[in-house]
Every structure is written in structure tokens, then in C-alpha cells.
Design a protein around this nucleic acid. Sequence first.
DNA 1: CCTAATTTTGCACAAAAGTGCCAATATTTA
DNA 2: TAAATATTGGCACTTTTGTGCAAAATTAGG
Lengths: 317, 317
Amino acid sequence: MNNDKKRLLAKVAYLYFIEDYTQAEISKELNIYRTTISRMLKQAKDLGIVSIKINDFDTDLFDLEMTLKEKFQLKNILIIPSYPKESNKSKDQRLSLAAALYLKRIIKPKDIVGFAWGSVLVGMIGQLQNPVKTEATFVPLVGGPSPSNSQYHVNGIVYDAARQFGGKSLFVDAAAVQESKYIRDGIINSQYFSDIRRLWAHLDIAFVGIGGPLTNSASRWRDLLTDEDRVLLRERQAIGDCCCTFFDRHGKILTGSLLDRTIAVPLDNLRQVPNAIGVARSLTKAPSIKALLAMGILNTLITDEETATRILEISSK
Amino acid sequence: MNNDKKRLLAKVAYLYFIEDYTQAEISKELNIYRTTISRMLKQAKDLGIVSIKINDFDTDLFDLEMTLKEKFQLKNILIIPSYPKESNKSKDQRLSLAAALYLKRIIKPKDIVGFAWGSVLVGMIGQLQNPVKTEATFVPLVGGPSPSNSQYHVNGIVYDAARQFGGKSLFVDAAAVQESKYIRDGIINSQYFSDIRRLWAHLDIAFVGIGGPLTNSASRWRDLLTDEDRVLLRERQAIGDCCCTFFDRHGKILTGSLLDRTIAVPLDNLRQVPNAIGVARSLTKAPSIKALLAMGILNTLITDEETATRILEISSK
DNA sequence: CCTAATTTTGCACAAAAGTGCCAATATTTA
DNA sequence: TAAATATTGGCACTTTTGTGCAAAATTAGG
């Protein structure tokens, strides 16, 4: 490539990108055919004569999004940056906010929005700044926690959401895990529950948390499990849960007594939901999140950088 | 400006400028209306989120071109870079080449192209690489030098040009300065000269050199001047010449005996020429070039960086 | 110096981007 | 909380840009 030519390309690029000439103006100015200018500009880019830099933009984060999106066939993904030394509480809070803003962005006037249990979901709604008025319906996707954790009740989430977004909310009056299949079935089939079941079949948006391994003690609802349940889960190598439904590392849902006693939307239902959104973070949950994503139940993931990185690491092995 | 918003703008800019998405694709991807994307991109530029840098581009040189172009109301300008320590011969040669390429770029099939005397013009044509076939007519704009400088005869230039570009050339069979007005008028009005005069009236392109002060001894034709002429030119403060026509620093053409004895296209004729191109360089000629430009006779200048800089310096005083 | 191969142009047409307008939303301010 | 201000959505329309193809120009090889 001759030097004069390079200078000419640079001049064209300068006029176009810096001085905001149109290609036609440059063409006239330099007596070069317009389409040639177009090609020269492309060439100038290719040769690196034009270098474009985007500030305030983390390419790595974006690549991470793209890679995961592709890998798990997601419709959407949102990864927020991780800052070193930040407390877990703060990390959760930022993730909550991101999820809340995401909901605000995608919610439509008459949507049916479900919430399942999840440490991050609890903090979501409170962080929103400006009320958006809708006539949406907010419905729990699972039963509540044990009475001692009532301040974290899933009913609270849907209630807050309805207040914030101006729609209405339904409550569940039952704990997530019941004593027997008989009672569980009784509740599920009860008159009052039929509204919820109907809504579960027509969800537009579902926000679900993702639980990590049993050893993780942060859970607000797992005190509902019996010792027997725990033994079984350990035996069957439960890796995590979603909507109080446990699965193993291969994405196999752990059926049996526990599941039969659980009040929650069936995971398979979520496949039909236009926005089935998982919200979770932390390195210990990464394997669980990965397994769930591989099941193809969710189509959207909201997480943070460190978690996403870990998910990718364990996926490539 | 909120930080999330900034990140969104950055993301849009990234997709557009780096990943070469179309605005429509981004719109679809992010669920944002296409025209909004267009506006976001503009905003991202304005906010400096997108920074575009042109490498291999000398902004100073470009600014110089723009400034001079504006100052002297030129249609076109070409300033080639100056390299320190380069010999004058080499500088002249590069300028010649630039001028030759410029001619090659603007010449059209049936153009009438005139050449006047000028140290740089002589070297022009020889440097062209690939012949371009035209049916152009090449005509001298001035008479020739003294017999002892015949190898630099203006006829040589037009002859070379015609060979190169495939058209025809006309010659002048007279020196630029004659002994008397009587002889000059005789030649000008002669039958053979009428072709040339006709062409002078219909020039499409005129290449003219620009001469510096009399003390500059490099001239190839000034040995035609008599001692008397020189005294007069000094008295009237000639600053330079173009087409063997002298002018002073105010752009006043020095009329009188000398001009009456000179065989050359009248400078005023050049005002009508679509491409009236001055080609000259050197610091000593700068005042002369400046004075000529100020006369508004030329509409294009081809020079080098150091000369252009000097012209600008003496213009701003 | 000529001819074949490759590259560059010019052109018509297709695709993409920008603009002005107004209504609908969203955000900020008082 | 309401009014004021700013932003986005939606649309028709114009301008600008990109592309495939044929012609011209340049380069490379004999």
C-alpha cells in the first residue's frame, strides 16, 4: 500500500468521521466518485486507519453475554459488572436493581407476572424509582416460607410489585412444602387456588430465583424440608433448585415424595412463558444455574460477571 | 447522565461501530425503536462515548489547506508535506509529481490544457506512470526561453504532455520577451499564432508556475530581460511573476514596455479558466505566491507545507 | 511492447440512516 | 401531586450509503 494512497484514505476518513461530511460532499471535494468514497471508507476501517473506540464499555462483559446467550440459546441475557471487594449484600442489591429495571422495561399494561422465591427477588421491587402504571397481575409461583421467615414471604413480593406497578396481586396461603401429598393436592385443587393455577398457565413474565446446593444455608425456605428430604436429596445428588423444585447436575428433576408435597409452578410450565427469567448470582450457585440453563426452561438470565464467568468455566470442561 | 444509560449508549455504539450491526438489528435486539437508535448513536458521539481516531493523518496539514483555501477563496488546494533536510531538488520533484497526478485526475477527454513556464512544471509530465488516453489539446501559455535554455522550452512540456495523454500539442516559435512591442504584436497577430490565441480563450485547465523576486537567479527565462527592464522592475518593486508577467506585493500588474514586449496569456484571461492552477514552492517565493493568490486570478494552488505555512504567516501580519 | 489477470471505477438499484412531526411516556420540578 | 420538561415511539419521507455487475484501468507476465 502506497503512502500517498494511505494519506488519501486518511483524509477521506477524516472528512467523513471527524468533520461529518457526507460521502457525496467528499466526492465533490476530491473529485472521486461517490461509491469509491464508500469503498475507501471501508478500506480505511479494514486497514486500521480509522480506529473507533467505545468508552465506558466493557467488551469482556459483552462477549460474556454473547457467549452465554449463544451457549444456552437464551432470548436475552443481562450481566452486571462485578467489583472486587464488594460485599455479597451489595452485590445482591445491585443485581436486584438490575432485575427490577429489567422488569420495568419489559412489562406491558396487562401482563401476568409471576414471582418465585429467591434471595435476590426479595429486594427487587423496593428499589424502583418511578412508578409505572399498569394493570398487570402479580402472582406467586410457589408457596411461602416457614412462619419464622414470614417477612420474606413471596406474598410480600407480589404485593409490593402490585403497589409499584399499579396492578393487582394474588397471594398464596400455604407453605411451599406441605406435610403430605394429600394436603398438597388438596390445596392445589382448592377453589381459591384455581385462580392461581389459571394464571400459571398464562404467564407473560416469570421471575425465578435459583437455589444452590443444600449446604448453602442462606435459604429462606429450606427449613421446611424434613431430615428425610435432605437425606434423599443428598443421595440423589441434588445440585440446586428453582421454584422449590430440585434437580441434579444433569438437569434431571428430582421427583418423588418431596416434589409431590411441594406447592409450586411445575418447571415445565415455564417453557411456555415468553419471559422466563432467572435471577441469581454467586460462585456456589454457578453449577446449579448452569444445570438449570441447560434444561432449557428459562429464556433469560440476569446475573453478575463473576457468576457468569464461573458458569462459562464449568461449561467448557 | 445516569450511568446505566451511558452503558446502554456504549452498547449501542459498540454494536454499531465495532460489530457492524445495522441500526435495525440493534433495534430488534434491544427492543428500542430504530429511529431512537439513530438518535442514541448521535448522542453517543456527542458525549464522547464514541471516539474516532484517524491514524496516518496530519491534521495540521489539513487545517493549513482549509485555512488557505478559505483565505484566498480557492476552489481547490493541495499541500504536500515537507520533510526536514530534504534537498530542494527532491522537494521540487515531489511537488511535480503531485501536480502531475493532480492533472491526471482532473483531465477530461477533450480538454484544452495550457502550460506556462515554471521550474516545477518542467519535471511534471515525465513522472507519470500509466498513460491515460485523451484527445486533449496542450498549448503553451507563454513564449519560450532564451536559446541557451532550449532544453527547458515550454514546447517540451506540451509535447511531453501530448505524448503522455495522447492528444495534440501546439508550439510557440518565439521567445517570451521580444525586442520591441512592434515585433511582439506582429507575432501575436500572425496567422500561426491565431490558433494559440483562440485556445487561450477556451482553456479548461491552466498550469502556471510562479516566479519569485528578481534576485532569485534560478529562472530559466529571465535572461531575456534587458538591464533596463531590470532597473524598472526594481524601481516598481516587482515581487514576482506569473506567465512572464510581473506584479508587485499589492498584486498590481506592472505594465509598460516589458509587458508590451512579452508573449504570454494575459493574466486576466486566467480568471475564466475552470482550473487555473498555480504550482510553486519555496520560502523565497512565498510573498510572490501570496500576492498572486490575493489577485484572485488562480483558483487552485499546489504547493508544499513549508511554503504554505510561510504564506499564511505573511498573510496574517 | 503487447496480452491476460487483477483491480478499480461508474452506474443503477437496494438497503440503511436521518429528519420532522406529533402523540404518548417518562422524569423532574415546584 | 400536578404541572412542566424531556424522552421515546411511531410514521412518512428524504437523504445517504452499500452492492452487484459491467466497463475501464492498472498491473503482471511473457
